[in-house]
């Protein structure tokens, strides 16, 4: 279990740790979109990509994620990255492109190399960003944030609170159930089950011998848990107060503006390649930004009424 480094919360007291999880999710999405925007020239792609990478590195440092940790979670991806590189180099690019080098009669084009580099850059940035989110935010806070984003759906009777409660309980029980998996596997191994080797039919049996006990105990657990929750006065239909209150600070506003600004800037650059604003694009950008802001405000208002 200790091997899982990706997505693990690392307690630390940093500015990013203290940020409002709702805002963190927003910023993450904004930055991810920014990372995935394409540009018409390679120069622009790598200048903007490099700047974003620089920004992400700063974030990593600020949130106290060691690069060792980051590379640890990238490990399973190295193989994919290499394959991507090779495949991309093998396929001749569309359109004209200078030849970078030749192996025998086979030509490798600059465009292919750039294309692969772009994909790798995006992949690494995307993983780093999600890691920043999960490493600096307690899983429970993430579910609270999720619940907040889902509040408007309560109008169409979507059980936002129940969904969030279910997720938070699932999160709480992951370590417990992993321990259980380990114990059952060991118990069955002691009875001669080999989970790693053997024919498909024996492997199937091995898996059944793990899954069935696991389900039985999970059902029993859920029953007992439901009893415990009910006995302690839990009723999903009833109003509840909140121990955890998510609060939006000045720094959050700053982060919010920074990330929206970054996203806006990349969109503009992508659209206009440094040519100037044209009236046809500006309204679209303004409207979409306004929509996000109004949505968040509205949810905030509804939420404060539901919870208080």
């Amino acid at each position: 279990m200790a091997k899982i480094t990706l997505g693990r919360y690392v307690p630390y007291d940093s500015f990013i740790h203290r940020m409002d999880p709702r805002n963190k999710i927003f910023c993450l999405i904004a930055l991810m979109v920014a990372v995935f925007i394409s540009y018409s020239t390679w120069e622009l792609t790598f200048i903007v990509g490099g700047l974003l990478a620089l920004f992400v590195i700063v974030l990593l440092i600020v949130s106290h994620i060691s690069f060792k940790q980051l590379f640890g979670s990238l490990k399973p991806l190295w193989f994919m990255i290499i394959i991507l590189l090779v495949i991309n180099c093998l396929i001749p690019p569309r359109g004209e492109s200078p030849i970078a080098f030749s192996i025998g009669s086979f030509n490798v084009y600059w465009n292919s190399i750039f294309q692969s580099l772009k994909i790798i850059l995006r992949l690494v940035l995307m993983i780093s960003l999600s890691m920043i989110l999960t490493a600096t935010t307690k899983p429970l806070d993430l579910t609270y944030a999720l619940e907040w984003y889902l509040t408007p759906l309560k109008i169409i009777k979507f059980p936002a609170h129940e969904v969030a409660m279910t997720i938070s309980i699932a999160l709480r029980f992951i370590p417990t159930i992993l321990t259980e998996v380990e114990r059952i596997m060991k118990a069955q191994s002691s009875r001669g089950v080999d989970f790693k080797h053997g024919k498909i039919s024996t492997k199937m049996k091995a898996i059944i011998s793990l899954i069935i006990p696991l389900f039985i105990s999970a059902f029993q657990r859920s029953e007992e848990l439901a009893d415990a929750m009910e006995a302690r006065g839990y009723d999903p239909k009833q109003k509840r107060t909140r121990y955890h209150k998510l609060s939006f600070h000045i720094l959050d506003i700053f982060a919010f503006l920074l990330c929206s600004g970054l996203l806006g800037a990349t969109i503009i650059m992508s659209h206009y390649d440094f040519t100037f604003f044209t009236p046809s694009f500006l309204p679209w950008f303004v409207v979409s930004t306004l929509f996000i802001v109004i949505y968040c405000l509205l949810v905030g208002i509804i939420e404060s009424r539901v919870v208080s």
Partner: peptide
């Protein structure tokens, strides 16, 4: 003890 511990 495990199945009545609800909070994280």
């Amino acid at each position: 003890p495990d199945n009545q511990f609800i909070g994280s």
